[in-house]
């Protein structure tokens, strides 16, 4: 008996988490199927009917699972959407990395340039950049390029800002020592600034992944023919709540997976540098 209690105590963390998760799903399923309405009917009478929620509003875990199976395996209709959106993210995020990191590092390194850039960064950072979308559509129409550009723009700012900030945190003593031994600017960049910046760059990348997921949903709200964001949008406006949840969950899982990959890389990179972890987390 005491060993059971011991086991419970040791595994309390995931047990409690799992119980709450199961309870949540059960409660949800019960709302959609009217279990709670039926159970409370004898006790509180007609008021219990409020707990019977129509499936178009709430769907249910089982309905979502069935729908996911249908969309992924039976008809496979989600794959083309997924492919198009994934390509958007690859191009948009890739472009943001290719442009944001070099420019951010350079602007962080050159003092006058960094002073010139800072007011724009403050302003852009305070603006929800999605507000530019109608403008971008005015410029570029509603094609595929627009959606890539929206993701690019949303990702560019966190990546640029992280690179810009990273240069400033490089230990000045190291730079001075290297410079006094006659290291060229290029060598300084390659051996001190870039390695010192990597934790920040990865943290920026992590933020950008979240932004890219927003970009998928928001960018595809306007005149797209195919894509996960469009699928979600269409499912929402036709009250196919289960498909809507499948789409949202797909984006959620994709975002989690990408973030986890970056986290893995972060951990691997930081093994040799104990203090960097704290700098990024704080």
């Amino acid at each position: 008996m005491s060993s059971l209690r011991h086991w419970l105590e040791r595994n309390e963390r995931w047990l409690l988490g799992a119980i709450m998760g199961a309870a949540f799903l059960l409660f949800w399923e019960g709302l959609a199927r009217g279990w709670w309405a039926d159970a409370l009917q004898p006790l509180i009478g007609q008021g219990a009917e409020k707990l019977r929620i129509r499936p178009i509003f709430l769907s249910s875990p089982s309905a979502i699972a069935v729908e996911a199976w249908r969309m992924y395996v039976v008809t496979g209709e989600i794959w083309p959407h997924l492919g198009v959106s994934a390509a958007e993210v690859v191009f948009g995020l890739g472009g943001a990395v290719l442009i944001g990191i070099p420019f951010g590092l350079i602007s962080g390194r050159i003092r006058l340039l960094s002073h010139a850039v800072e007011p724009f960064m403050t302003a852009l950072n305070a603006t929800p950049q999605v507000a530019f979308i109608p403008l971008i559509i005015l410029w570029m129409g509603t094609g595929y390029g627009t959606r890539v550009f929206i993701i690019f723009l949303l990702c560019l700012i966190p990546i640029f800002m992280a690179s810009h900030a990273a240069v400033k945190t490089v230990d000045v003593r190291l730079l001075k020592v290297a410079a006094s031994f006659g290291a060229s600017e290029l060598l300084l960049f390659r051996t001190i600034i870039l390695p010192g910046s990597i934790p920040f760059l990865l943290a920026g990348l992590r933020l950008a992944i979240g932004r890219a997921m927003i970009g998928i949903v928001v960018g595809e709200l306007y005149g797209s023919a195919i894509g996960i964001g469009l699928m979600i949008n269409k499912a929402g406006s036709t009250f196919q709540t289960a498909s809507l949840f499948v789409g949202v969950l797909t984006i959620v899982i994709a975002g989690l997976a990408l973030t986890e990959i970056v986290r893995r890389i972060e951990r691997r990179v930081e093994i040799w540098r104990p203090e960097a972890q704290q700098a990024v987390n704080s």
Partner: peptide, 29 residues
């Protein structure tokens, strides 16, 4: 500690998600 074990998984999951993606559901509701 117990409240943490019970509630934090939900918060972590929600944190990993751009909550904007729930907008279509919220509009539905």
């Amino acid at each position: 500690r117990r409240a943490q074990y019970m509630i934090q998984p939900f918060i972590d999951i929600m944190n990993a998600v751009p909550r904007i993606t729930f907008l279509p559901i919220l509009v539905l509701w």
